[in-house]
Simulated assay, not measured.
Amino acid sequence: MRQWIVVVLSCMIVLMSFGRTAEAATATSSYAVIDADTGRLLIGMNEHERLPIASLTKMWTAFVAIEESSLNTKTTISKKATLSEGSSIYLVEGETTTLKTLLNGLLLRSGNDAATAIAEEVGGSVDGFVKLMNDYAVLYGLSDTQFENPSGLHNDKHLSSAYDTAQMLRIAMQDKDFRKIATTKYYKNDLKNPTVWKNKHKLLHYNKYAIAGKTGYTKVAGRTLATYFEKDGKRVIVVTLNESNDWQVHAGFAEAVFEKYDKRLLAKKGLYQVRDDLQVELKHPVYALISKEERNKVKSILRMPRIEKGNTGIWTFYLDGQPLIEEPVQMVWK
């Protein structure tokens, strides 16, 4: 059993409930608004209710594919892929393209044929890839989520929540390749019938703070939407499920959060003295969105293994007794 030395380092701020805003009141089903840096839930309603998420599934499909393969991987399109039900980028049986092109078709145009082609290439089969999707969901703690296909076509068991879906986008956006594709507004493909794809997410074209996201729709799921907003260093993710007024709701939520929350520095990058013979090094600064009403105390605790000359500790920041964010620190012995 691993033992730890626990050091209480500082007290800065305490969490208060955001409460329902006017914008929140306009949303009608399930939604989650999170801090994209820490994953903290800022606003929510029925945020853990397990619901169909339609094509928001494709964010996780893209993330898993990028983690498991190379963007330059060449893929020959199968007949099964071309016969995929629903939205399509019109792949042709036997044509060869790259995983990069398929991922752009997946995220920008929501191609179900692209989802099938990616699954067959990366997972060996659709079923093999869906297993990977679920394995990654377990790895990243998406406890509300179960995948049955890579596209989001309706299946009674294919469910997630607004909260988990927001976390999917937060996790995926930390990958530079995913981020580059997800923030693309137009992409000229190299398919047999080449064309220029326009990102279906309307806010990316009309709201200067919306930089990435995904649309979705099935008759059962209704309209589903995920949006990643950035303004003045603040990063916010909004997810709504079964929301017909989604464009306006997303813009309203983002505006409310940007107005209410400041980006606060919790810890600077650098060395911290723990005791006479030991310092710890934080490799990058730690930030969180904190409202003006939350300027009381935050506790941060450093845990270090009880191993002579150990190498790594964990610095955890708490809001109101709940973990906010964990950061590894390098132990520097004198």
Rank of each mutant, 00 (worst) to 15 (best):
A62E: 02
T61L: 04
A36K: 07
P52K: 08
N46S: 11
F63M: 00
P52Y: 13
L42A: 05
E49A: 15
E47P: 03
S29H: 12
A62L: 08
E47K: 10
A27N: 00
V64C: 07
I34L: 13
G39P: 15
H48M: 06
V64A: 00
P52L: 02
A65G: 13
D37N: 14
A36W: 11
G44S: 15
M45D: 12
T26I: 11
E49V: 15
E67G: 07
G44P: 01
L42G: 11
S30D: 14
D37T: 12
L51I: 15
L56W: 13
I66C: 11
I66P: 08
R40E: 14
R40K: 15
M45Y: 14
A32L: 02
A65H: 01
A65K: 00
D35A: 07
N46K: 14
P52I: 09
E49L: 15
E49F: 10
A36Q: 08
T61R: 00
W60D: 01
L41D: 03
A54R: 03
A54G: 11
W60Y: 11
G39I: 02
A36N: 10
W60E: 00
H48I: 05
T61H: 10
A54N: 07
G44T: 02
K58W: 01
A65S: 13
Y31V: 04
S29P: 09
I53L: 15
K58Y: 12
A27V: 00
H48W: 03
M45E: 15
F63N: 03
R50S: 01
S29Q: 08
A65M: 13
T57R: 05
R40N: 10
V33S: 06
Y31M: 08
L56V: 15
L42H: 15
G44F: 00
P52C: 12
A65W: 04
E47L: 07
A65D: 05
T28D: 04
G39V: 06
G39Y: 05
I43H: 13
I53M: 06
T38A: 11
Y31W: 12
F63K: 01
M59K: 01
R50G: 09
A62V: 08
E67I: 05
A32P: 10
V33R: 09
A27K: 02
T57Y: 03
E47M: 03
M45T: 08
D37L: 06
D37F: 10
S29R: 06
P52M: 10
T57D: 05
K58S: 04
F63C: 00
A54K: 02
I43D: 11
T57M: 00
R50E: 08
I34F: 13
A65T: 03
S30I: 02
E47R: 09
F63P: 00
E67H: 08
M59Q: 02
P52V: 07
